[in-house]
């Protein structure tokens, strides 16, 4: 079953073609990694899927829904969560609050419930909290629960950001370079965490990653991108040996 499909997606910024006629599709439950040199258009691709940028042409279909008229904040409701390359956390809030904001899409209360903190709002808070605590357990964040983001090391922030994305209970999560800035040990842990997300939570993962070791350990398939075009897509080994990929990396 296909969860995400891109058909001939293109976008240009002032004459520079950032993404040119990119097409691929990914299956439900799959881990697909996007690799490619700097400036290949990987993050742009993420921003197109999360509708921060609008497409010039082509179409993106998620779960049989065409994301044409979808506004950025509605993407999360459809079931796509994402992280950012340099983390975009809510810095002046605690880890717990960041996770609770991740639960926002599941809000069922209206403004009146919330202004007077009626029963419905209270019950909802407890549900959100349990959800957040599950994620805290999954990612081993217990000791940071009430720490503000500003005082956390970068590695933990990356993890909190993944946790926040998971609180949405998404069907698909977009991870933008989850291992950048992590030390080897943390990267090692990340392999298991990605497996947990895939196996335990059943979430499909689309991931931008440079660390080929991590990519080959976790990914079902790998997509190589250069200059906004798809070079090849296939098993990790095949992609790494593909002559065009080698050429793109070595110049």
């Amino acid at each position: 079953m296909t969860i995400l499909e891109l058909k001939n997606v293109s976008v240009a910024f002032g004459g520079v073609k950032a993404i040119e006629s990119v097409s691929f599709s990914m299956e439900h439950g799959e881990v697909l990694s996007i690799v490619g040199p700097n400036g290949a258009g990987k993050t742009t691709l993420f921003n197109l899927i999360s509708k921060i940028y609008d497409l010039d042409s082509g179409s993106i279909i998620f779960n049989d829904i065409e994301l044409k008229e979808t506004r950025p904040h509605e993407i999360a409701k459809l079931g796509i969560a994402r992280t950012f390359q340099n983390t975009e956390l809510f810095e002046h809030e605690s880890v717990l609050n960041n996770l609770l904001i991740g639960c926002h899409v599941h809000t069922g209360t209206n403004l009146v419930d919330e202004l007077f903190f009626l029963r419905k709002a209270q019950d909802q808070e407890l549900v959100f909290r349990k959800n957040a605590e599950n994620i805290i357990d999954l990612l081993d964040l217990q000791s940071y629960r009430n720490t503000k983001i500003v005082s956390l090391p970068f590695g933990i922030r990356k993890l909190v950001e993944i946790g926040r994305a998971l609180c949405l209970k998404p069907k698909l999560v977009l991870l933008d370079e989850p291992s950048s800035g992590l030390n080897p040990e943390e990267t090692e842990d990340l392999v298991f965490q990605i497996e947990d997300i895939k196996e335990e939570l059943g979430i499909s993962i689309l991931m931008i990653e440079h660390d080929m070791n991590l990519v080959s350990k976790t990914s079902d398939r790998v997509l190589a991108l250069a200059d906004g075009k798809v070079l090849t897509i296939g098993k990790s080994q095949e992609v790494q040996e593909h002559p065009q990929v080698i050429k793109a990396y070595l110049g």
């Binding site: 904040h73 509605e74 999360a76 809510f90 002046h92 809030e93 609050n97 904001i101 926002h104």
Partner: peptide
């Protein structure tokens, strides 16, 4: 608070 700290990420969390 999410809007205050990061508009872009608030949006991706489904906040209008």
């Amino acid at each position: 608070t999410a809007v205050r700290d990061s508009e872009i990420s608030a949006q991706s969390m489904g906040i209008n």
